[in-house]
Design a protein around this nucleic acid. Structure first.
Lengths: 191, 191
DNA sequence: CGCCAGGTTGAAGCGCTTCAACGTCTGTGG
DNA sequence: CCACAGACGTTGAAGCGCTTCAACCTGGCG
């Protein structure tokens, strides 16, 4: 059923007893998003963490009328404007469907309740934050220490699926260059 | 006494009962580091989190014989090669004293034991990972969306202490530019 | 004193950005 | 069914800010 994927995902982090699961399940909300629709906009306080069952989303912010892509999320990935979610402050991010999406949402209050009531969940929260930290560290180092060309090569290697599914100008933004620059990088790499 | 600072730091994240504290205190190790000495080198598995009582450290890695500074740490800050620490894999980081340091160390096994035995500590671990995530997100966005000039301006504003205490070429590395470029940025900003 | 580390300055080069023009594909309405 | 519009990608030319390399300045220290 539609919550099987997220259950499996959780189970990778902590053992999930039937009791735990039965407690959690009623709090999950299934949401569908059409291509181009937004899950969240600048100024919203992010009130949910989102699990992607199906589809593809981008997470970006806007500055001087330009779009800056911070991340992509696809099947079996966990996403949110985590900074806004944690600090309860308005976020700067837009989260938008690049393809039609099937998402599972879990709200802040429920999560906090689970943190305090279910030991395992506190641990899940820790592991999740640690996991996200490691992810973002990798991206950090990539941005600081690698050339755009190297970043593109790595991205193609690590996420060949996204190279296919995401328009090139969004990938350029994600890599921190203009679409023209990425086009030339690709051309250079062919020879 | 020497562990007062870290106790206070912990108390910012979780209530710390006398019982908790008495349990934790014996596991803390006081370490002194002279300017230029290293706490950790590339290839080491990071086995401790470190709290800085006094002094100043830099965290960097080496690539093509060049030093790339990832972070500075000073009084009342918490540091480690968190990726290596969490994943138990050899790290890429060097951690080195820029000034003589007084540090408080807490090792991996003790922390894991505390995670499983003391509820509050599990929560501390979560909050700490969340905190680090937010920190690194900020840096991430700065690197991706701001010019070196803007990064320098922000850095001067946020860490005027470090501008004074850290040699300029290390700040340049931290900001992701060459020492020459930073020198010219500073010159530009004077007019 | 002379050395060395740290900072500045100059000149050349390169890869990115910007702006503008031009392909190419796809979908949509006349 | 074709024609056109719009979205996406490519290409060219000019400009800019960074890097690199080299020279030089300065202050602290043996």
């Amino acid at each position: 059923m539609v919550f099987d994927q997220i259950k499996k995902y959780y189970s990778n982090f902590i053992p999930m007893s039937d009791d735990d699961w039965n407690l959690l399940k009623p709090a999950l909300r299934l949401v569908h998003l059409k291509k181009g629709e937004k899950l969240q906009s600048e100024g919203d306080i992010c009130n949910d963490v989102t699990f992607c069952n199906k589809g593809l989303l981008k997470c970006y912010h806007i500055k001087d009328d330009k779009e800056y892509v911070e991340a992509f999320f696809t099947e079996n990935e966990y996403l949110s404007d985590y900074t806004s979610f944690l600090l309860r402050i308005p976020g700067k991010l837009y989260i938008e469907a690049i393809e039609d999406c099937e998402l599972v949402l879990l709200d802040y209050d429920t999560i906090q309740t689970f943190y305090s009531r279910v030991d395992n969940f506190q641990k899940f929260g820790r592991l999740m934050a640690e996991f996200l930290f490691i992810q973002i560290s990798l991206r950090n180092n990539s941005l600081l220490f690698e050339s755009p060309e190297k970043r593109y090569i790595n991205f193609s290697k690590n996420r060949p699926d996204l190279i296919q599914r995401v328009p090139q100008y969004m990938i350029a933004s994600y890599l921190g260059v203009t679409p023209e620059a990425l086009s030339r990088i690709r051309k250079r790499l062919l020879s």
